[in-house]
Design a protein around this nucleic acid. Structure first.
Length: 365
RNA sequence: CGGGGUGUAGCGCAGUUGGCUAGCGCGCCACGUUCGGGACGUGGAGGCCGGAGGUUCGAGUCCUCUCACCCCGACCA
């Protein structure tokens, strides 16, 4: 579809570069599905570009990788490793496949997004050519890139705990929930007044707030319920708070509680939401970094894989044969060759052949 | 498609070598007491035991067939 469109749209270098983005519901045959991570039907975004030069296309592929990684890190609070796929893991038809790889709390890796530099492969397959400014005819250079609802599963698996979901404040649909604690109608009435005032104050500051004064559930029930739903911050207001002009603040990320004055509450919460966002990222980063293990031998490799999991940084001889053997024997694949990978002499853990850099292995979703 | 497992109340499950009114937890309804971490008490409602056939005086339980779902493996983002 996309390439047929390109074929009819692209005539000259003046038509380039060209970008088409679409959101599409995709249905695939899957032998076995996994909620969010591999569903038979899913929503994804796919972007396709065509360029007049190789370098411009490559820049685009790299730019989109950055767009995805920035979204993952700054919005989802999910640290990712930007890298290049090996020939085995490369998208069919791509010259180079870039990816962002994340680590889940169970020690398995997941590809959170990809971006491909397609060279002229697709242009040749679909006969998409253009006239250059020097009046010659050339094939276009292309990229494609996408993310999907898989990111939702990734988000869940990266942050959540046994009490339920944990959402980073920046993407939480509701950032703050206010819960009244009362014994009778009079108390509720006066708490309502205060709570609504606080709610409005927060709304004015751009914070999304829900005030839950539903009388059908107890406070304790609500506490648990909103923790399950991952709302970053909870405000509790009871008779004691009315007395002292305070509220109780409870953080979802670390489950700590504190009593703070009502005065300047919005300012405090604004800061706290930022802090939670950063804290979630740092927690995930610390976990990820402590689960990148460098190994020197295949025995070590297998031991770490079995006992610890996570990413394993190891020398590899660069051949598909070795990669396939390791995959067959351990289920681990090369997730990527990090973009900022330091060059380093070594010996392939499997074949013993010379290697000039380490790559990241892991079992993956 | 191979291997394993499960179908009993809205949900999660128990149910002995076949035995008489099929139980338990959660949830639900009513009332009262509660309400700062998923409240407690008392009372109550709710069941073609996945489906069909068979054995038997008697089947949730045994046999045959059938349907559905789940898990593991070859797949894959």
């Amino acid at each position: 579809m996309i390439w047929n469109t390109y074929k009819s749209w692209i005539r000259s270098y003046r038509d380039l570069p060209l970008l088409i983005n679409q959101w599409a519901n995709v249905v695939r045959w899957e032998m076995r599905t996994r909620l969010f991570l591999r569903t038979a039907e899913f929503l994804w975004q796919e972007g396709h570009t065509a360029h007049a030069s190789s370098i411009e296309a490559m820049d685009e592929a790299r730019k989109m990788l950055d767009v995805y990684s920035i979204f993952a890190e700054e919005w989802m609070a999910l640290p990712v490793i930007k890298g290049v796929k090996t020939a085995n893991e490369r998208f069919a038809g791509a010259v180079e496949t870039f990816c962002i790889e994340a680590l889940m709390q169970d020690g398995k890796a997941i590809q959170a997004g990809t971006s491909h530099f397609l060279g002229q492969n697709f242009a040749k397959a679909f006969e998409v050519t253009f006239t250059t400014n020097e009046n010659s005819i050339e094939y276009v250079w292309a990229t494609s890139w996408g993310v999907s609802t898989r990111l939702v599963g990734t988000l869940i698996m990266a942050h959540s705990d046994d009490k339920g979901l944990i959402l980073p404040p920046k993407i939480a649909p509701t950032q703050v929930v206010i819960i009244p604690i009362y014994k009778n109608e009079e108390q509720l009435t006066s708490i309502n007044e205060k709570a609504v005032a606080i709610k409005n104050e927060l709304l004015l500051r751009g914070i999304t707030v829900k005030y839950d004064n539903d009388e059908k559930q107890t406070p304790g029930w609500k506490f648990a319920e909103y923790e399950l739903k991952g709302i970053p911050l909870r405000i509790g207001i009871g008779p004691r708070d009315l007395e002292s002009q305070t509220v109780e603040l409870a953080r979802r990320d670390d489950l700590t509680k504190s009593t703070v004055p009502m005065k300047d509450l919005a300012e405090l919460i604004l800061n706290l939401l930022d802090e939670i966002q950063i804290s979630l990222y740092n927690r995930a980063l610390a976990f990820r970094d402590s689960n990148i293990t460098a190994v020197e031998t295949y025995e070590e490799f297998k031991k770490v894989l079995e006992e610890k999991g996570g990413f394993i940084s190891a020398h590899w001889d660069g051949t598909s044969e070795t990669e396939n053997k390791i995959k067959e024997e351990t289920k681990a694949t090369i997730r990527c060759i990090p973009l900022d990978n330091p060059q380093q002499e070594g010996r392939c853990i499997y074949s013993g052949e010379k290697s000039n850099q380490r790559v990241l292995f892991a079992q993956a979703y």
